[in-house]
């Protein structure tokens, strides 16, 4: 044991921290844009549809009649992994449902969105600065330019933007990924018995970052 200790003593002394800071090889590390992982996790049942997860800097739009429920499933895993969620919503989203789908409400901030589209986009841009996931309903009259402003900030900050778009206000081609939903059937309920338990939702994945549109039927809770 003493031999090994003595052996270590023969090695050159470790360089002081200041030397290390001056090392050009280390300097390059700090110039790397971002050491965070490139994507935020997405859990079941959507994991199969978005194998890359929620990619930072990109916009996902959910449309159709199951949009709200799908968005809650979409952001749940990321919030559980430590990301903060800013939810721009005027009280429509059922928070109990969000909790049941796994959204970490302790890291969720609810923002009442301004009505006019230009203040909406500047509020969203502010949120993107600090929140890793921002979910919002596009307001009536939002122009592609309003959305582009937010998207530019999303790309710069490496956040993920999720647009809840049941009324299909987001123009085609503006979102990187579009998840168009349509409920096929409900399960667990009969005439006067059981309760609404789960449903089959047909999801069509499209958008400018999707190589080839494809569709799948998912069984989701509520």
């Amino acid at each position: 044991m003493f031999a090994t200790l003595r052996g270590m003593g023969d090695a050159p002394p470790p360089r002081a921290l200041t030397d290390l800071r001056a090392d050009p090889r280390l300097r390059t590390l700090t110039t790397l844009p971002d050491l965070r992982s490139a994507a935020l996790p997405v859990g079941d049942p959507l994991g199969g549809l978005l194998p890359d997860g929620l990619v930072r800097g990109r916009t996902v739009a959910c449309s159709g009649d199951a949009a709200v429920s799908l968005v809650l499933h979409l952001v749940a895993a990321a919030t559980q992994a430590g990301s903060w969620l800013a939810l721009f919503d005027d009280g429509r989203v059922g928070l109990l449902a969000a909790h049941e789908r796994g959204v970490a409400l302790q890291r969720t901030v609810l923002v009442s969105p301004p009505r006019d589209p230009s203040s909406w986009s500047s509020a969203l841009a502010t949120a993107v600065d600090g929140f890793e996931v921002v979910a919002a309903f596009p307001p009536r009259g939002a122009s592609p330019a309003d959305l582009r402003r937010v998207q530019a900030r999303v790309q710069a900050r490496g956040a993920a933007l999720v647009l809840v778009d049941p009324r299909r206000r987001v123009p085609a081609g503006q979102a990187d990924v579009v998840l168009a939903t349509r409920t096929r059937a409900w399960h667990g309920i009969a005439d006067g018995a059981g309760h609404l338990e789960s449903r089959d939702v047909e999801v069509e994945v499209a958008g400018r970052r999707t190589a080839r549109p494809h569709r799948a039927v998912l069984r989701i809770a509520g």
Partner: peptide, 21 residues
């Protein structure tokens, strides 16, 4: 970062508009 962004949102929209469940 999230706390700071919330503070900015409060300054921008007013305290009543930024809430937690």
């Amino acid at each position: 970062a999230a706390v700071q962004a919330s503070e900015r949102l409060v300054a921008m929209l007013g305290a009543a508009c930024v809430a937690v469940p």
